[in-house]
Design a protein around this nucleic acid. Structure first.
Lengths: 354, 354
DNA sequence: CTGAAAGCGCTTACAG
DNA sequence: CTGAAAGCGCTTACAG
């Protein structure tokens, strides 16, 4: 049966039992102004006796501070992002905030009745790797919500956390060219919602041209970062008149699928064709051969994004000046076997973020 | 600089501009009682002109409905659970609710001032795979919060979503015994926060004894479901006087690590030693050999748990009777190569939930 | 140190 | 169909 609900105990009942006013109860709850030790004691006892829990909604409404931060995860269907959620959650809750998850993006313009119900309830917003409608975003920011973007920029208006995609890819491609001497490259792209796939491609091109190598247009095939697209991309590449020596994938998932696809074609990786990834997720350690890839500090991306909005909130509260920041986190090359390096030379396994 | 905040527009300004009372504005917002078309039109225009956004906190406080549901993820550090989050989020937001994520468990008894700030703000709670303090949980339920547990039970008081661990493992072990004729088994356990690892072990034992086989105590080693523990477990097993023919791991992650560890010992999988997993996460398709495992409908677990609390909430709202339910989702055997089945016999790859 | 009171921005019977 | 008013459960100047 549905339990009959005893009406929740309010601050009035606590006040009554303690023989004080509700203002005083509020003061001991918030530990703000001074309250005499005896009174405080009485109030605490009353709270305990009644098993009182303050109503968070009322607290927030009265204090005009929501103490909530939203995390927008639309279009993100990639396990890659899970550590970001944890990074955000840990940071935000350590600061006494509560995290709202929203898979549907805010819609500020529409006045339909089915608008998301979390509107006007967050002090800050963290927006991950999705194509942002700039107008909409600016309108949200104007309404006073502090915004951090992950893997995206909105210069001047919102903080953003990026990773050094360019230099990570540069290090990887240098290794492929200088250590292995590969000349015929191919690239499997990610989606173009964010700039990272194209930045990685730009780095690839730059290093190649520094070595007087080129990347023909037909050697670039489109993927979507997700399970499956790496295989079809690989099939296309293997139908090319001249087989590439190395396939650079925009992320680990597609690289893993590319390896499987190459094997279906009877090719050995890396002997017949090398494959590399990007991200260094856990999966990269289990493919066969294990993936040479670029490590991204995923958890830290979330933690940083959260820190940026918390800093801004604090500054605003203290009336300090504050500017949206752009933080670029470092990436590092992780050499395993899929590039053609021999097992013996392998560096110790490095854990992906979990 | 910190943007100077224009004070947010309230229902009063909308009412004034539209020349009506705030009650009427509220009625068009909530689409409840009838409002004349003309008035409604005027109000909608005013809302649009002022770019009005109702304050969610005030709405919830006044209506006494939080329209929020909490998801407790403490102690869950396993990528396995990500699809659960999505399953919950999709379901909950489709019903017009907002999802709060809490990595710290509710603490109802303590009256310290650093209590989580989301208390008393959720209509329902979904609690995933953690050791629950029963007293605490009951106190939460008594306070009127509807609770669903995932991979756990609290009979009579909360709904729960389980998967058919037992029969999944039975199918797997039958395959190992009847198709492959293995006789010497080993088992790598998961944590004992929840019952699933021990249920899987029980199934393993039952099938073995049905075939007059036994599982010596030293062939059972402890793991923790996470990255790393499968390797050390495998090392222990390979130090046994008599090498097991097949190692049954309580999840895919440990099975993947066990395969790598076996290879370090110079053993071939599955020729020298077979390994199986549980869960059928994406990783299972990429290990070499690919994992024979038991598929769990992970996304669906989250969706179901959410549905259960939403159903209860609806029933309560309509004054209907409602009982906490226990839902057991089916599991299915997925045969790949790590059990010893030949590549040619392999069934088509089956996607893990993402 | 403490109380009385206004206020946070809405919803919802109750009249009309 | 619409308005006036009470109420949701707190916080926070303002007095004292």
């Amino acid at each position: 049966m549905t339990k009959k609900q005893e009406p929740p105990v309010t601050i009035f009942e606590v006040a009554e039992r303690a023989g004080v006013s509700i203002g005083t109860v509020s003061r001991v709850i918030n530990n703000r102004n001074r309250v005499s030790p005896k009174t405080r004691q009485r109030v605490l006892e009353a709270m305990r006796a009644l098993n009182y829990q303050p109503n968070g909604l009322a607290q927030r409404l009265a204090s005009q501070q929501t103490k909530m931060i939203g995390l927008v995860l639309t279009q993100v269907n990639d396990p890659f992002y899970y550590p970001i959620v944890r990074g955000v959650e840990d940071t935000v809750s350590a600061a006494g905030y509560t995290l709202l998850i929203m898979s549907h993006p805010p819609q500020r313009n529409e006045h339909s009745l089915k608008r998301p119900l979390w509107q006007n309830m967050v002090d800050g917003l963290i927006w991950v790797a999705v194509s942002v409608d700039v107008k909409e975003m600016l309108s949200i920011i104007k309404s006073g919500v502090l915004v951090s973007l992950v893997q995206q920029e909105l210069s001047g208006s919102a903080s953003s956390v990026l990773t050094d995609n360019y230099n990570g890819m540069v290090a990887l491609v240098r290794h492929l060219v200088e250590t292995h001497g590969y000349q015929r490259f191919a690239y499997i792209t990610g989606t173009n919602y964010t700039a990272d796939s194209s930045e990685r491609l730009r780095a690839l091109r730059d290093v190649l041209s520094q070595h007087a190598l080129s990347l023909p247009a037909e050697n670039i095939v489109t993927g979507d970062y997700l399970h499956g697209s790496g295989a079809s991309a690989m099939h296309k590449l293997l139908a090319l008149p001249e087989r590439p020596q190395v396939v650079v994938a925009a992320n680990d998932q597609m690289a893993a699928d590319a390896i499987l696809a190459a094997r279906e074609h009877g090719l050995r990786v890396p002997e017949d064709i090398a494959v590399t990834g990007f991200d260094d997720v856990l999966l990269a350690q289990y493919t066969s051969p294990a993936l040479t890839t670029v490590h991204q500090p995923i958890y830290e991306m979330g933690a940083q994004a959260a820190r940026l909005v918390l800093d801004g909130l604090r500054a605003r509260q203290e009336g300090r000046e504050w500017l949206p920041l752009k933080v670029v986190l470092p990436t590092t090359l992780v050499i395993r076997q899929s590039c053609g390096c021999r097992l013996e030379e392998v560096q110790p396994a490095k854990g992906g973020d979990v």
